[in-house]
Amino acid sequence: MASLGLVSDPDFPSHVADSLAESLPRYLTERLDEAEWSIELVSDPVAAGRSSGKEILDATERQRRLHGWDYAVGVTDLPLRQEKRPVLADIGQEHERVGVISLPALGGFQPQRRARQLLASVLAELTGNDDRTDNGLYSPPTEVLAPIRRERASSDSIAVRYRSTRRRGRARLLSGMVRSNTPWRLVLGMSGALAAALATSVFGLTSSTVWQIADMLGPFRRGLLVVLAVALMATWLIVTHKLWEKPRYTADREQRMLYNSSTALTIVTGVGCLYVVLFAANLAGSLFLIDPELLSSSLGGSIGIGNYLGLALAATSMGVAAGALGSGLEDDATVRRAAYGYREAQRRANQQQTEQREQTGYPDQAGVRQQTEQQDQNGSREGTEQDSDTER
């Protein structure tokens, strides 16, 4: 029996690794020479602080030796790129029994299925099985949307690399970065914004003036109202909480564009989810609370479902606009946790800490280095303690 360790970043990669652990044993048995596989999971916050494929491979190798696994694969949501091309996986040269897969490069749809296919190819490399055509990784749709290429890496630390093409792969990478941020969590992650949105929506549903304004709006202006409300809250969140990536932190212009594009899409998607949920609640509330005769007497005409839809849309737009102001009551850390996954939230927090240190004066470098090493050691101990509960 061969043992495999999956060393994942916390948050979304851990969920993917947990799904893989359930389906992998049988999947690998059908495609690789080993008769049986045992899978163990480790969520490593220290590895989540690394910023390159080589560093993640080193951290994964340390976990492999610590647990005595035959093979180990890191599962990360770090968007890896090489020569401006998205990297799906790296197989170690210096560490011959470890590899790493980058979830964002797999795209935003069906990440578990694609991660399983890619992991089977990575394990085929690690075990010396050359059959890489049987797992669906090179399917015709993939070749059309974002072709995957296997190549020998010109590096002392990486033996084999799986990468995508630059242009088509970049679109898939961007969608994967948004998926890793799980934007729908934005709905419940900011209690202040949600409370302001709900309170304002209730006011809109009970105001006869809002009823009349909603009835006068045509389809075009209603659609424009929705776009403006979502754009207002998204822009407010990005600007107020300093979510825009600055050139000083990411010198690579294309990488910076990816970070900023993923932030904008994540926030817009999250606010869109908030709008849909709030609209459904307002529509249900208006149908339940507002009698058709009362609405008819206020609007002066026959009442249909279209009137209730327009009313719910107007109240929702008011609520989302108020939610933008309510989000100003949230601290930056709360917004980062709601808008990003663990790794990206930590990276943004480190940037903010750097700015704060610059404003107050740098501590001595030895103190900074000692503090960083202590945090890494604490994170490693915490990750090891958590591993005992998640191993399987």
Rank of each mutant, 00 (worst) to 15 (best):
S8D: 11
P10M: 06
D11I: 01
P25R: 09
R26D: 12
Y27Q: 09
Y27T: 07
L28M: 11
E30H: 05
E30P: 01
L32I: 09
E36M: 09
S43R: 10
D44R: 02
P45R: 14
S51Y: 11
E55Y: 01
I56Y: 00
D58P: 01
A59E: 10
Q63S: 06
G68M: 13
G74T: 07
L78G: 00
L80G: 02
L80V: 07
R81P: 01
Q82L: 12
R85I: 02
R97W: 06
V98H: 03
G99Q: 01
V100G: 00
V100W: 03
P104T: 03
G107S: 09
R114I: 05
R116A: 15
Q117E: 15
L118M: 14
A120E: 13
S121Q: 10
T133C: 05
G136D: 09
G136E: 06
Y138R: 14
Y138A: 07
T142S: 08
L145C: 05
P147F: 05
R149T: 15
A153Y: 03
A153R: 04
S154I: 09
D156H: 09
D156L: 13
S164Y: 00
R168Y: 06
L174F: 14
S175E: 07
V178H: 02
N181Y: 02
T182S: 15
T182C: 09
L188A: 12
L194H: 00
A195R: 05
A197D: 02
A197I: 01
A199T: 15
T200M: 12
F203A: 12
S207Y: 05
S208K: 10
V210Y: 06
V210R: 05
W211K: 09
Q212Y: 08
I213K: 06
D215S: 15
M216R: 15
G218C: 11
G218E: 12
P219V: 07
F220G: 03
G223L: 11
G223M: 11
L225T: 14
L225N: 06
V227N: 04
L228V: 13
W236R: 04
W236Y: 10
L237G: 00
V239C: 06
K242E: 14
Y249V: 04
Y249D: 07
Q255F: 05
R256E: 01
S261A: 14
S262E: 01
A264Y: 04
V271H: 00
L274Q: 15
V277C: 11
N282C: 15
A284E: 08
A284K: 07
G285L: 15
L289E: 08
G300M: 05
S302G: 12
I305K: 04
Y308K: 08
L313T: 11
A321G: 08
G323R: 02
A324Y: 00
L329E: 07
Q353C: 04
E355A: 14
Q356S: 11
R357W: 14
T360A: 12
P363Q: 15
P363A: 15
Q365E: 14
A366G: 11
G367Q: 13
R369H: 12
Q370Y: 07
Q371P: 01
Q374D: 10
Q375F: 06
Q375K: 12
Q377D: 10
S380Y: 13
D387Y: 10
S388D: 10
D389Q: 12
R392P: 10
